[in-house]
Amino acid sequence: MSDAKVQVRQLTKGFGELLVLDNLTFDVRPGEFLCVVGPTGCGKTTLLNLLSSWWTPTQGEICIDGRAMDPKTQNLSFVFQESSAFPWLTVEQNVQFGMKEKRFPPELIAQRTREVMGLLDLESVKEKYCHEISASAEQRVVIGRSFALHPDFLLMDEPYAQLDIKFRLHLEDAILALNRSTGSTCLFVTHNIEEAVYLAQRCIVLSNKPTSIKAVRTIDLPYPRDTCSPEFIAIKDEITEMIKWW
């Protein structure tokens, strides 16, 4: 039996004549941080929509813990590119939203709220509404809300795309800390290769449409990673070379 947390088998998605994803097969290991990179328009968002069950595949299957994926019974979470923090809730209420919906015991909600807000440096703004905090803090709220559930599988769609570089670096460290402390299995989609190399234990490189897996690159550099080290730059260049279409 496979030790994979998530198994994706022969995943294919087409829209009429247009074949977007062509026969993708990969595993995500328990607690792993997996990044998916690829050229713009290659179907990364389509892949996420299938992995989150918003769309049904034309062919293939996705299993979590050996069972067909079902958001109703399995603990999934999703961080969107655009902020999805609920403006009518305070920071603290946002972080607790999923736990309350899933009827976690109050003590567990309180404990996880403290843990997540501490790791994401949100304690000082916990009573504030999202319009009163910065864009970076708002995205931290959304990330914290997802991690607080300790999801079986957490999908992230370029959650830092709207933020500037100094916030990105800070948040990348925070997300790694949360991944380690919650043990959640994460799949992070990005077009930023440096970000992928900084975060991932493995990186899936997608081809142009019809999209298939071009390579799976293991990144075994120790954390925290030095973006200026020769090894880091070498891996980044190697992945960039694979994505190049020009």
């Binding site: 958001p71 999703f78 403006p87 009518w88 919906e101």
Partner: peptide, 29 residues
């Protein structure tokens, strides 16, 4: 109402009733 709110709430475990009372009504308030 931004569909992202509905998608987020659904994936965070909100059922139909919770979507109405915890997302749609406060969002449209």
């Amino acid at each position: 109402l931004d569909p992202t709110y509905l998608k987020s709430a659904k994936i965070l475990g909100a059922g139909q009733r919770a979507l109405l009372t915890h997302v749609i009504l406060p969002g449209a308030l």
